[in-house]
């Protein structure tokens, strides 16, 4: 029974669907970005015009917005790395039966709707919300803290909440692959816990960290709803600008140019970040040492 087809060929229909559903729309953005709009008739006019790109590159507001998205992404990725390591280490130290349960407990809040999470945080952080009421009751503060809601602080906090599991999971999986004897050896040779972590665990788990940073950055920088519903006046993102240009302003060429610029910057940042982490001392040892 000889078939010319193998399982590898199953990639073809999947690749075709992904091309049709993801890549083709993005290619279309490139085409639309050089079109012009007839504002009287509300139709796009096929053309080869640099108009949208000229606007994109000369108006500082677009670069500012993309820079802000990158900052939200980087800030959240760094916060998630600092918060993710202790949690991942704690899960790795559990008995095997509990590890699976811990990961499910960790992931369940992720499955709640985007809008549910945003809505819940508004109740927690509002001026008569949980945090302020509790702090006032304890006598720590006498007037509600204003920075809790509708500020960049809120955006970072909720983005951290949304993305932390994407950091914890890959780091945890990386830790599980580390030979525990290496850490024990470091401790036996007199390394303090922090030192053993920095010199042994951290370098050996950089693949997980790299995946986590990549995922968190992509999710946080690309999130539109959290900044716009919880970030207050600071919540304008390139995504909400694209939404406006696409819907209200009917400037599809400019929306396309901005979308593509944003994509390029995000992809470049995510790649550079993961690459830098993988170049850390020790990371290369992991790949040389049999992780394929």
């Amino acid at each position: 029974m000889k078939l010319p087809l193998s399982r590898a060929h199953l990639a073809i229909p999947v690749a075709f669907l992904l091309f049709l559903g993801c890549l083709l729309p993005l290619i279309l953005l490139l085409v639309f970005s050089v079109f012009t709009v007839d504002m009287d008739a509300f139709v796009m006019v096929p053309a080869f015009s640099p108009q949208a790109w000229a606007q994109m590159l000369t108006k500082p507001v677009f670069a500012f917005l993309i820079g802000k998205a990158v900052m939200f992404g980087l800030g959240t990725a760094v916060l998630a790395a600092f918060a993710g390591y202790p949690v991942a280490l704690a899960i790795a130290s559990l008995a095997p039966a509990w590890k699976g349960i811990a990961s499910v407990i960790l992931l369940t809040p992720l499955y709640t709707g985007e809008i549910v999470r945003i809505y819940a945080w508004r109740i927690v952080l509002g001026s008569e919300g949980l945090v302020n009421t509790l702090l006032m009751w304890l006598g720590v503060i006498h007037a509600p803290l204003k920075f809790l809601l509708f500020t960049p602080f809120t955006t970072h906090l909720v983005l951290l909440y949304n993305t932390l599991p994407f950091m914890v999971l890959p780091i945890w999986l990386s830790i599980e692959l580390v030979d525990r004897r290496l850490i024990e050896a470091a401790r036996d040779l007199g390394a303090r816990p922090l030192h053993a972590f920095l010199r042994v665990t951290l370098p050996l788990t950089t693949p997980g960290l790299s995946v986590g940073l990549f995922a968190v950055f992509a999710l946080a920088a690309g999130d539109m709803l959290t900044p716009s519903l919880l970030g207050g006046p600071s919540g304008v993102t390139p995504m909400s600008m694209i939404d406006n240009l696409f819907g209200t302003a009917f400037d599809w060429p400019l929306a396309s140019a901005l979308s593509l610029s944003l994509l390029l910057v995000l992809l470049a940042c995510a790649t550079v970040m993961s690459w830098l982490v993988l170049r850390l001392k020790g990371a290369r040892a992991v790949f040389r040492g049999g992780m394929r």
Binding site: G222, M239, A255, S256, L266
Partner: peptide, 19 residues
């Protein structure tokens, strides 16, 4: 290709698909 739908912000992808 498989990572693409994860990496591209959903807003951008959805708008491009709508276009």
């Amino acid at each position: 290709l498989l990572v693409l739908p994860f990496l591209v912000p959903k807003t951008v992808l959805s708008i491009a698909q709508a276009m």
